[in-house]
Amino acid sequence: MELSGIASYLISFLTFAGVYAVLALGLNMQWGFTGQFNIGIAGFFAVGAYTSAILTTPSSPAYLGGFGMPFLVGLAGAVIASTLLGVIVGLITARLRTDYLAIASIGIAEMVRLFVKNEDWLTNGVRGIAGIERPFADTLLDSPLTYLVIVALFVAGVYFLVERAYASPWGRVLRAIRENEPATAAAGKSIAGFRLQAFVLGSAIMGLGGGLYAHFFGFLSPEAFMPLYGTFLVWVMLIAGGSGNNRGAILGAVLVWGVWSGTELLTGMLPSEHATQGAALRVLLIGVLLQVILVTRPEGVLPEKPPRLIARKR
C-alpha cells in the first residue's frame, strides 16, 4: 500500500475510533459512574444519526426531511432527540433494579430498529438515507482530515465535560449510588433523580456520537448500523479500557476498534464465499475477548482512580 493509502486508512480508522470514543464516554456516564446497565446504545445512536441526517440532507420526495440545515444544527437535533428518548426510558426505569433497565433498553433499541425499518415516510425504510454531507462540503476545507479534527474536538470537549462531572460533587453522588445504594439514600440523596440525570446525559452523548457517525459515513440504513454489534463493541471498549475511567473509555475505543478492524483485514483475505463466516468469526473473537477480560482483568487496562475525597493535611 502506498503512503497516501495508509494515511487515508489511518484517518478513517481514527475517525471511527473517535465516534466510538464518544459513545464509550456516554456509556461510562451511565455504567461506569452510576452502574446503570444500558444495552440499547444502538437505539440512541440510531436516533441521533437519523435526526441529524433528516435535518441536514437536501429535500427528497422519498422521506420526510430535506431541511438542508447546517451541520451543527443537525448535531444539536441529534442530541435533543436522544435526550428525549433518554428521558422516556429513564423515567420508566430509574426506580427499578438495573436488570430491568437492561431489558427495557434492549427493547428500546429493538423498537427504534423496527420503526426505522418500517416507517418509510420518515426514514426511507430499508433503502436508507444517502448523501449526508460532511461539514464544509464544497469548500477548500472539505477533506477527511478536517472531519477527523472536528471529531477529535468533539471527543476532547465531551471528555472535558464528563471529567468535570466525574470529579464534581454530582459525580460523587453517582459513584456513591453505584457502590452503596441504601447508604446514599440514607444520606438524603434522591436515587431515582440522580440516576435519571446520569442516564439522560449519557443518552445525549450517545446521540451526539450518532450524529458524528452519520456525517462521516454519509449513508444510513437500518442494517448498516449492525445494531447489536455496535452496542456490543461499545461495551467491550468500555470494559477493556476500564469502566469508570474516562481516559480508559477513550483508550478502550481505540484499542478495541483496532482489534475489530484488524480482524476485518484478516478475514478480508478469506475467499469471498466464506465472507459471512468471516464476519461471524470476528464477532466470536470479540465475544471471547470480553469474557477473557471479565475473568482475568475486570477492572480494565486503566482502572478507575477516584479523586481524593478529603484534602490531605499539609
Binding site: 446497565f37 444495552i39 447489536l228 454489534y229 456490543f232 461495551w235 467491550v236 470494559i239 459471512t276 463466516q277 464476519a279 461471524a280 468469526l281 470476528r282 464477532v283 466470536l284 470479540i286 465475544g287 471471547v288 470480553l290 469474557q291 471479565l294
Partner: peptide, 15 residues
Amino acid sequence: IASFGMALILRSLVQ
C-alpha cells in the same frame, strides 16, 4: 455482561 457476550458468541458459532 458475560451472558450478553455469550449470546453473541453462540450466535456467531451457529453462523
